[in-house]
Write a protein that binds this DNA or RNA. Structure first.
Length: 833
RNA sequence: GCCCGGGUGGCGAAACCGGUAUACGCGGAGCACUCAAAAUGCUCUGCCCGCAAGGGCGUGCGGGUUCGAGUCCCGCCCCGGGCACCA
C-alpha cells in the first residue's frame, strides 16, 4: 500500500456523523477514544523501532494556556505524530513547572494557598491540552511542586553538595526589592528583575550557589556537539564570555600590596599609564580614606546598575594619590578609583592603556593622564588593532600578535604574571527567600555546621503556613515548629534551612524524570534513561536561550560527572518557535490584547486552531494572529469534510456516465492520483527535513483544490470513485499530524480504519515523474515562451523544440545566436548578439 | 557600537541546489445556484502602456559576477531581536 489507502473491506463502511463539518461532535469522539485506550502511552521496554523523544518546554501553569502554548504543542504534536507513523517509538510527555512567584504573589494578595491556585491552573491546562487533542503519554504526567517530584530535586541537590558543586558563600548579590528575594545575575539582565521588571539592588549576603563556572569551558566546547539554532548558540557563547589573556601583577610599594589584574592585551603593557580599582574593591579606603574618595565610593555603590551602566555617562573617578609599579618597565603609574571598573569581573582592578583602549582613553582625556602609543597603526588614537610594537623595550619592532605569548612567558618567568582565562559567567545563585519552591534539604547545626538531610528523610516537605509575605527572609522562617529540628549528625538542636531553590533547578532535570516518572525508589533507572535520553527534539521559546537551557546543560554535565548519567548534553536538537502577536504587539494582560486559544477552539474546533497557527507562517518566526485568517483554514477543513461525505455517499451511485471506457488508463495515471503522490512527497519532506508546516498545509490545500476540480468526472465511474476515495483518505492521512480529529474521522469514513495505526504514506516515484514537461524558453535571459517537451528529452531535442516557437523566432529575428544554454527538463536560453 | 534575524502583491506568505517571481491563504471583482440573502461552487486578481495581439517594468537602495540573480559578492538604508564600560 503506497498511498496509505486501499478500499475498505465490505461491511466496515462508516457513515458520516453529521452532514455539516461539526468539530464539536468529531473532536470529543476521538479524544474519548485516545483517553480510554491510552493510545499515546509508551513503554520503556525497547523494541526494534528507533526511539524518538519529542519534548516541548515545561509550561508554567498560570490561569489557562495561551496562544504560545497552542503553538508550541501544535508543532511538537505534529512532529510526534509524524514520527510515530514513520515507525518510531515516540515519547511525548507532559508536566508542569508548578513552583514559582506568580502563584505566591497571588497568595499574598488573596490568601489563597499557592498549591490551591496552582493545582486549579494545572487542571485547566490538562483539560485544554486534552481538548486540543495533543497526543500525550499521560501516565508520565508530573508537577514540580509534588513531593514525589521535589524529593528528587532535593536528592540531586545533595549529590551536588557532596561533590562541592553546591556551596555557600557571602557575596555581593542581586536583590529584587519588590519580590524581596535574591536572584541569579542572569535573572536580572541590565539591572532589572526578569520577573517583575523592577530595578534591582546589590546586597552583601550569604547565599547558596552552584559551581556552574567550573563547567564554563565544557558548556562552551560542547555547543559544537549539538544541533541548535545558531542564534541560541551565539547567545550562550556570549553569556559564557570566555576571554583568554593574562594575569599581571602590579605592586603598590607604599602599601606593600600586590595587585593582580586581568588583561586580554598583555602586548600593550608598556603603554599602561595608570591603574584603576573598582569602587567596591575592599582596599580602596585603606589606600585613601579622604572624604572625596569616601563620597565617591558611597555614591557609586548605591547607584543602581542602570544608572552606573548608562550608555552616555561620562567616565568619573578619583585619584588615590598612590602609585603602582608597571612590572615591564618599572615605571610608577598613578592609581584611581573609578566606577567604569567592575568588581565582578576579573580582579576588580585594571591596568589602563589609554592609547589602545577606548574606555581608558576617554578617562585619560578627562584626568590628564599620559597617552602613550605602543602599537603602530591606525590614523589616530585610541587604536585597538594590531601592528608592530613600539616604545616597548626589547619588543620594539615585533608584531604584537607574534610577541604576545613571549611577553606572557617573560612575565611568568619574572613571577609577575601568567596566562589566564576569564569568563563572564558567574556561579548560579540558587537560593530564594520565598515560600513556594523546593526546600533546600539541609539543617544548620550550631555544632556540626551545615548538615545534609539524609536521603531516607527526603523529601523535606514544605510546611503549611498562613502568611506568605516575604520580609527580607523566607516566609518559611516563620514556621517555627518546622524550622526547629534535630541535627542528623549529632542529634542536637538544629534549625532547618529556610531558603527555597530557584525554580530553574526544578526545570533543569524534569526531562530525566519523564523517562521514569513513577519510580519511587530512585530518581530514574539507568535503563529508562538509556532508552530515551537525550531528547531528540526539544521545542520552546527563544526567551529561554540562556537561563533554562544553560542550567539544564550544566546540571546534565554535573550529573554525568557523578556517574548518574551516560551523556553530556540533554537536548540533541533544539527548535525555537516564534511569538504569537496581536496587531504586531506582544500579547499581555497590561495591553489588554490577550486572546485565549479557548475561544477559537470553541468556535472553530481544535483542528482549525492548530492548523491556523501552523499555516500562518514559518514556525520559527513571530506571527500575527488575525481573525480573518482563521476562517480560511476552517473553510479548508470543512471542504475536506464535505468532499469525504460526498464520496462516502456516492458508493451506491450507478456508473451512469460513459467515461468508464478506459479504466486502465485512468488507474495508471489520473491527475488526481499524481497530485496525491506529489502531496505525499511534499508533506513528508516538509515534516521530516524542515519544520515547514505552513507549506505542508498549503500543499494539502492544493491537493484538495485539484480533487474538487476532478471530482465530478471521477464520481462518474466506478474506478474513478475508488480512486477518489483513496485520494481523500490519503489527504486525511497527511493532514492527521496537524488536524488529528478530522484526519481520523475522514480516514475512518474512507477506509473504516484508524489512521494512527497506519504507516505514513509513501510516494510512488513513478507517479511523481512527469511524461510531458514545460520548458521555459528565454532569449538573452528574458522569458519569451513556454513549450512542451517529453520528459527526459535530449538537449538537442529540447533546443529544436524551443527554436520552433514563433515568439522566440521573432525575438531572435536578424540576430546571431552565439550560445545556447539548456537545462534539462527546465529551460532553454538563446544568447543573441 | 557589536552580533544575529528580516525587508517579495492591498495583507500573511511561497520559491529547498543560481533556472517560469508571487504557490497556498486572506482581502477584492465577477459569474452560477437562490424570490432574495447567507452558505457553497467556479473564474479573474503585481504595476504601467495598449481595443487587442503584444510590449515594458517589477523581490528595500546603489554597484558587481553570470547566458540567467529574490537567491551569490561589495557598499548602503530601514525594521525586529540579543549583547553592551566584561579590561
Amino acid at each position: 500500500m503506497r498511498a496509505g489507502a486501499r478500499s475498505p473491506p465490505p461491511g466496515t463502511l462508516s457513515r458520516p456523523m453529521t452532514e455539516r463539518y461539526d468539530p464539536s461532535v468529531i473532536e470529543p469522539k476521538w479524544q474519548r477514544v485516545w483517553a480510554e485506550e491510552r493510545t499515546w502511552e509508551v513503554s520503556n521496554e525497547a523494541d526494534e523501532r528507533p526511539r524518538s523523544y519529542v519534548l516541548e518546554m515545561l509550561p508554567y501553569p498560570s490561569g489557562e494556556p495561551h496562544m504560545g502554548h497552542l503553538k508550541v504543542y501544535s508543532v511538537g504534536d505534529a512532529l510526534a505524530h509524524y514520527r510515530r507513523r514513520a515507525g518510531m517509538r515516540v515519547l511525548h510527555p507532559m508536566g508542569y513547572d508548578a513552583f514559582g512567584l506568580p502563584a505566591e504573589n497571588h497568595a499574598i494578595k488573596t490568601g489563597q494557598h499557592p498549591r490551591a491556585s496552582t493545582e486549579a491552573s494545572i487542571a485547566q491546562f490538562r483539560e485544554q491540552f486534552r481538548s486540543w487533542g495533543i497526543s500525550i503519554d499521560w501516565s508520565r504526567e508530573l508537577g514540580t511542586h509534588e513531593p514525589e517530584y521535589y524529593r528528587w530535586t532535593q536528592w540531586i541537590f545533595l549529590r551536588l553538595l557532596e561533590r562541592g558543586l553546591a556551596y555557600r558563600k557571602e557575596a555581593a548579590v542581586v536583590w529584587c526589592p519588590v519580590d524581596e528575594t535574591v536572584l541569579a545575575n542572569e535573572q536580572a539582565p541590565g539591572g532589572f528583575c526578569e520577573r517583575c521588571g523592577s530595578a534591582v539592588e546589590s546586597r552583601q549576603l550569604e547565599q547558596w550557589f552552584f559551581r556552574i563556572t567550573d563547567y564554563a569551558d565544557r558548556l562552551l566546547d560542547d555547543l559544537a556537539t549539538i544541533d541548535w539554532p545558531e542564534h541560541v548558540v551565539t547567545m550562550q557563547r556570549n553569556w559564557i564570555g570566555r576571554s583568554p589573556g593574562a594575569e599581571v601583577v602590579f605592586r603598590c610599594e607604599s602599601a606593600g600590596v600586590d595587585y593582580p589584574v586581568f588583561t586580554t592585551r598583555p602586548d600593550t603593557l608598556f603603554g599602561a599609564t595608570f591603574f584603576v580599582l573598582a569602587p567596591e574593591h575592599p582596599d580602596v579606603l585603606g589606600l585613601n580614606d579622604s572624604a572625596e574618595v569616601r563620597e565617591y565610593v558611597d555614591r557609586a555603590i548605591s547607584a543602581s546598575p542602570e544608572e552606573r551602566g548608562a550608555e552616555l555617562r561620562e567616565k568619573t573617578g578619583v585619584p588615590l594619590g598612590r602609585t603602582v609599579t608597571n612590572p615591564v618597565n618599572g615605571e610608577e603609574i598613578p592609581m584611581f578609583v573609578a566606577d567604569y571598573v567592575l568588581m565582578e569581573y576579573g580582579t576588580g582592578a585594571i591596568m589602563a592603556v589609554p592609547a589602545h583602549d577606548e574606555r581608558d582613553f576617554e578617562f585619560a582625556g578627562r584626568y590628564g593622564v599620559e597617552v602613550r602609543r605602543v602599537i603602530e597603526g591606525g590614523e589616530e588614537l585610541p587604536y585597538t588593532g594590531d601592528g608592530p610594537m613600539t616604545a616597548s623595550g626589547r619588543f620594539d619592532g615585533r608584531h604584537n600578535r607574534e610577541a604576545y605569548d613571549e611577553i606572557v612567558e617573560w612575565l611568568a618567568s619574572e613571577g609577575r604574571g601568567r596566562a589566564a582565562v576569564n569568563y563572564k559567567l558567574r556561579d548560579w545563585l540558587l537560593s530564594r527567600q520565598r515560600y513556594w519552591g523546593c526546600p533546600i534539604p539541609v539543617v544548620h547545626c550550631p555544632v556540626c555546621g551545615v548538615v545534609s538531610v539524609p536521603d531516607e528523610d527526603l523529601p523535606v516537605e514544605l510546611p503549611e503556613i498562613e502568611d506568605f509575605a516575604p520580609r527580607g527572609r523566607s516566609p518559611l522562617a516563620a514556621a517555627e515548629d518546622w524550622v526547629r529540628t534535630s541535627c542528623p549528625s549529632c542529634g542536637g538542636e538544629a534549625r532547618r534551612e529556610t531558603d527555597t531553590m530557584d525554580t530553574f533547578v526544578d526545570s533543569s532535570w524534569y526531562f530525566l524524570r519523564y523517562c521514569d516518572a513513577r519510580n519511587d525508589a530512585e530518581a530514574w533507572s539507568e535503563q529508562a534513561l538509556a532508552t530515551w535520553m537525550p531528547v531528540d527534539q526539544y521545542i520552546g521559546g527563544v526567551e529561554h536561550a540562556i537561563l533554562h537551557l544553560m542550567y539544564a546543560r550544566f546540571l546534565t554535565k554535573a550529573l554525568a560527572d557523578l556517574g548518574l548519567l551516560g551523556f553530556q548534553e540533554p537536548f540533541a536538537n533544539l527548535f525555537t518557535q516564534g511569538m504569537i502577536t496581536r496587531d504586531g504587539a506582544k500579547m499581555s494582560k497590561s495591553r489588554g490584547n490577550v486572546i485565549s486559544p479557548r475561544q477559537y477552539v470553541e468556535r472553530y474546533g481544535a483542528d482549525t486552531a492548530r492548523c491556523y497557527i501552523l499555516f500562518i507562517g514559518p514556525p520559527d518566526h513571530d506571527a500575527d494572529f488575525s481573525d480573518e485568517g482563521v476562517g480560511g483554514v476552517h473553510r479548508f477543513l470543512a471542504r475536506l469534510w464535505r468532499l469525504a461525505v460526498e464520496v462516502a455517499g456516492s458508493e451506491g451511485r450507478a456508473g451512469s456516465g460513459g467515461s468508464d471506457g478506459e479504466p486502465g488508463r485512468q488507474h495508471r495515471a489520473s491527475p488526481a492520483l499524481r497530485k496525491t503522490h506529489w502531496a505525499i512527497d511534499k508533506v513528508t519532506g516538509d515534516l521530516r527535513d524542515r519544520f515547514a508546516f505552513n507549506t505542508a498545509i498549503a500543499a494539502l490545500m492544493e491537493l484538495l483544490n485539484d480533487l474538487y476540480r476532478d471530482k465530478e468526472a471521477m464520481l462518474a465511474s466506478e474506478a474513478g470513485r475508488g480512486q477518489l476515495r483513496d485520494c481523500v483518505a490519503t489527504a486525511a492521512s497527511l493532514l492527521f499530524p496537524f488536524a488529528p480529529h478530522l484526519g481520523s474521522e475522514v480516514y475512518e469514513l474512507m477506509t473504516g480504519r484508524r489512521v494512527w495505526e497506519e504507516r505514513w504514506p509513501e510516494a510512488d516515484p513513478r507517479l511523481l515523474e512527469r511524461e510531458v514537461v514545460q520548458i521555459v524558453v528565454q532569449v538573452n535571459g528574458k522569458l519569451r515562451d513556454r513549450v512542451e517537451a517529453p520528459a527526459g528529452a535530449s538537449e538537442n531535442e529540447q533546443e529544436r523544440l524551443a527554436r520552433a516557437s514563433a515568439k522566440v523566432a521573432a525575438q531572435i529575428d536578424g540576430g546571431q545566436v552565439v550560445k545556447t544554454v539548456v537545462v534539462p527538463d527546465r529551460l532553454v536560453n538563446f544568447v543573441v548578439r
